[in-house]
Design a protein around this nucleic acid. Structure first.
Lengths: 108, 108
DNA sequence: AAAGCATATCGTAATATTGCAATATTATAA
DNA sequence: TTATAATATTGCAATATTACGATATGCTTT
């Protein structure tokens, strides 16, 4: 085991899970926060800001990219990373929709 | 290793990561979708709807509860689960804020 | 009390994730 | 061309997650 049984769930459910999972690590949240603050697509200045080894950061960046949370473009020997707005919008809408559709009535 | 180095990150970053991680499994997304659809706090009718064994579902429910995504109240020999709106609001706002603060200019 | 439900917990096997050193790769600079 | 800088990949150890059978716990009904 250890393997997720994906076959039973809808496309949408799997999509959300994959994206949420990618945000499910503080280092990756920190990277997003940093990209947002710097307000530009930085390469691995990330290394200087986040106290993890270079291979580890590279791995986290890959996870974020695979989940479409960030984009990266090669620029010489540097990579410009930036936030992929639309995926965050998707998340925001998905969660916002849940929040606003909860009915209280006989709830806990 | 395998252990996340949490000590370097902010409270907020860790909080978001924990919540996002809890949403990072399709079964848990499916449970939330179900709770929303049923529009009431059901006990383990979840079992009938989600094709996983009872202990597995119970475990997923615990993860969701620990992340404050759902609440559960005991009612006789049943548990009423329901969505914890405020945590979803928190997520929606956090991600929405990111989406709306991205600056494009020289981005990828 | 006994039987029967709904849930939780335990133990365990299979697999995934995290983190990093070492090493590769690729682009620029000297 | 050689060195240097930025990034990716590989390999591996430690730990976490997922899934479930078996079993426990705790109501509720008979």
């Amino acid at each position: 085991m250890g393997t997720t049984k994906t076959e039973h769930f809808t496309e949408k459910q799997s999509e959300i899970a994959i994206i949420a999972k990618a945000m499910g690590h503080p280092a990756r949240v920190a990277i997003i926060d940093l990209l947002l603050k710097v307000n530009a697509c930085i390469g691995n200045d990330i290394l200087e800001k986040i106290p993890l080894a270079q291979p580890t950061i590279s791995q986290h960046l890959k996870v974020l990219k695979d989940a479409n949370l960030i984009k990266g473009t090669i620029e010489g020997n540097t990579v410009r990373y930036c936030i992929n707005e639309s995926t965050f919008e998707l998340l925001s809408k998905y969660f916002g929709n849940i929040a606003s559709n909860v009915i209280h009535q006989d709830c806990c």
